[in-house]
Simulated assay, not measured.
Amino acid sequence: MASDPTAGGASAEMPVETPEENLDIPPRPAGQEADVQQLQAEKAELQDKLLRALAEAQNVRRRAQQDVERERKFGVERFAKDMLSVADNLGRALSALPKDGDVSDPALRNVIIGVQATERELQSALERHGVTRVKSLGKPFNAEFHQAMMEVEDPTVPTGTVVQELIPGYLIAGRLLRAAMVGVSKGGPPARAASNEN
C-alpha cells in the first residue's frame, strides 16, 4: 500500500509555511544599534567577570585542599616537638641505668624492662604519626640534618663522619623536625661527599 500525501484529509495544494512567514519580527529601529552594541559589550564584560570568579573559586578550593593536606601532615608538629623531650629523657634514663644482665635485684630489673618498653612504645607512636628518627652514626656530616656540637679526633674514620650522637634528630613527613646534635670526626682520611639519605 503506497503512502498517499493527501490521506487524512490534507490537501495536496496546501502551502507549507516557512518560519520567516510565521514570525512577526518588527524591523530594528536605527537608534537601537548602539544599544545592541552596548549590551553585547556588557555581556562580554560579565562573561569575563564570571570566568574570573570561577577561576578564583577553583584556586580558593585548591588552596584550601592544600592547607588541609598540610595540616594533616604537619598539624602534630608542635605536639611532636614536645614529645621529643620525653623521648630524650627516657633515652637518658636508659643510658644511666645498668644493663639488664648486670642487675641482681628483680625489682630494679623490672623497672629497667618497663622503661625500655615505654621508650619502644613512644618511638612506635611517633613513627605511626610520621615522626621518624634521623640515622646519624657512621654517616657523613650533613648540615641539613645534623648540628655539629664538637669535633672528635679519630684517625680511623674519614674526616667529617658522625661518630657521636648527643641528641637524636627527627623528621616529620620527610621534613626536619629537629636536627641531630652530633660529634664529627677529624684527623682521618678525607670524607666522601655528604648524602641526603638519612
Score class of each variant (00 low, 15 high):
Ala57Met: 12
Gln58Asp: 03
Asn59Ser: 12
Asn59Cys: 05
Asn59Lys: 15
Val60Thr: 12
Arg61Phe: 11
Arg61Thr: 11
Arg62Gln: 07
Arg62Phe: 14
Arg63Met: 12
Arg63Thr: 05
Gln65Met: 08
Asp67Leu: 09
Asp67Phe: 15
Asp67Lys: 15
Val68Trp: 11
Glu69Ile: 07
Glu69Phe: 15
Glu69His: 14
Arg70Thr: 04
Arg70His: 11
Glu71Pro: 00
Glu71Gly: 13
Arg72Ser: 06
Arg72Ala: 14
Arg72Tyr: 09
Arg72Ile: 02
Arg72Met: 14
Lys73Gln: 14
Lys73Gly: 01
Phe74Ile: 04
Phe74Pro: 00
Gly75Met: 04
Val76Asn: 13
Val76Ile: 08
Val76Lys: 06
Glu77Met: 14
Glu77Ile: 09
Glu77Gln: 12
Arg78Ser: 05
Arg78Val: 04
Phe79Glu: 08
Phe79Trp: 10
Phe79Asp: 03
Phe79Ala: 10
Ala80Met: 09
Ala80His: 02
Lys81Tyr: 00
Lys81Arg: 10
Asp82His: 14
Asp82Met: 08
Ser85Met: 06
Ser85Tyr: 11
Ser85Leu: 06
Val86Cys: 08
Val86Thr: 11
Ala87Gly: 03
Ala87Ser: 14
Asp88Lys: 04
Asp88Arg: 09
Asn89Ala: 12
Leu90Pro: 04
Leu90Cys: 06
Gly91Leu: 03
Arg92Thr: 09
Arg92Trp: 06
Ala93Tyr: 12
Ala93Arg: 10
Leu94Asp: 00
Leu94Cys: 13
Ser95Glu: 08
Ser95Trp: 10
Leu97Asn: 02
Pro98Asp: 00
Lys99Asp: 02
Lys99Leu: 07
Asp100Trp: 07
Asp100Ala: 09
Gly101Met: 02
Gly101His: 05
Gly101Trp: 01
Asp102Tyr: 13
Asp102Ala: 06
Ser104Ala: 05
Ser104Cys: 01
Ser104His: 03
Asp105Tyr: 06
Asp105Val: 09
Asp105Ala: 05
Asp105Gly: 07
Ala107His: 08
Leu108Ser: 03
Leu108Lys: 09
Leu108Val: 15
Arg109Pro: 04
Arg109Tyr: 08
Arg109Trp: 05
Asn110Met: 03
Val111Thr: 06
Val111Gln: 00
Ile112Met: 03
Ile112Leu: 13
Ile113Glu: 02
Gly114Lys: 14
Gly114Trp: 09
Val115Pro: 02
Val115Gly: 01
Gln116Lys: 15
Ala117Asp: 10
Ala117Pro: 13
Ala117Arg: 15
Thr118Tyr: 08
Glu119Asn: 12
